[in-house]
Nucleic acid binder design. Structure first.
Lengths: 162, 162
DNA sequence: TATATTTGCGTAATCAATTACGTAACTAAT
DNA sequence: ATTAGTTACGTAATTGATTACGCAAATATA
């Protein structure tokens, strides 16, 4: 047994979640690549979001994607460079820069949709093959921590020991 | 509903895994801190490993922890700076630098154990409160992909469509 | 209307980890 | 003993994301 951590159980939930995430991300990148599609997994959230909304400001996006606004700027810069995204200054609020898919970005969508469908399908198969469904488990955790944070639970446990 | 992604289901398993991992990591850091313990979550795997083995080479550690060897060197450097880890050249193989906990590192262990016990316990509570156990789900995924990789499954699915 | 506060965005610095590459030591084959 | 190949390690460059900071526009308040 090379791997020390599977045994460690609850202590390293976070590490195992991260490891699995990295693994799937990496495989995703490979998949785009082997299909000859010039696209990276990290672009998906922003691209997908913009494909469903007309235009959005940087901060809106950051909130919706749950990432920092500099991250949005960074990703947007890359997608603008690819020509898939353009931006305009908001008329109502001159501070805002609104992002949206360009024509080129929209015309790329059908090709992406095909890949996304494949990914979705395989992921569905993975999840359905599980006797313990990881998406349900995640969903449950999210709800659990939304009602009372991890940190609060830590505090309470330590109080209860006194 | 601000958050677009809970709805996206299987397509973004990876992002959700990562998000949950980050969340727990962050809370962990806060926890060490609020207990006045000068320790960071990222140090845990190496520290814990060294506390269970006498001494190990860089590559051994990288394999066991499933991280790159430069990452090990980096972490080791930090722990050496803290005075918790020392290294010696291997007698059998002059290329190897063996890492182990220093006396100071060993004497710090009991304090860490207390914290780790608390973390373990709260994590156990979290997991046990779940009707769908996230650790079991992860375990299952790991076994699943070990038997046939994600990439292979992708290929097979695409073949099957033809 | 003037002033203070908040909000949206951009840049810079930083962080954690990776890949790529170079060097030295070991091993195997001739 | 030489040469070729592999292994262990270290450094540098890159990646992807964060926090910190500052400016300008908008909003609230006196």
């Amino acid at each position: 047994m090379q791997d020390v951590f599977s045994k460690l159980g609850p202590l390293i939930i976070a590490s195992r979640l991260k490891r699995m995430s990295d693994y799937i991300m990496r495989a995703g990148a490979e998949f785009y690549n082997s299909n000859g599609v010039d696209f990276e997994p990290k672009w998906f959230p922003l691209y997908y979001l913009l494909s469903h909304e007309k235009e959005l400001g940087i901060m809106d996006i950051a909130q919706k994607l749950n990432i920092s606004h500099p991250a949005v700027i960074q990703l947007a810069k890359e997608l603008e460079k690819k020509g898939w995204v353009t931006s305009t200054k908001s008329k109502e609020d001159a501070r805002k820069r609104l992002l949206k898919l360009s024509k080129k970005g929209i015309s790329f969508l059908p090709q992406l949709q095909l890949i996304w469908d494949d990914i979705r399908e395989v992921n569905r198969q993975v999840v359905e093959s599980q006797s313990t469904n990881v998406l349900n488990a995640l969903e449950e955790m999210e709800v659990f921590f939304a009602s009372k944070s991890y940190t609060e639970r830590m505090k309470e446990y330590q109080e209860s020991k006194k």
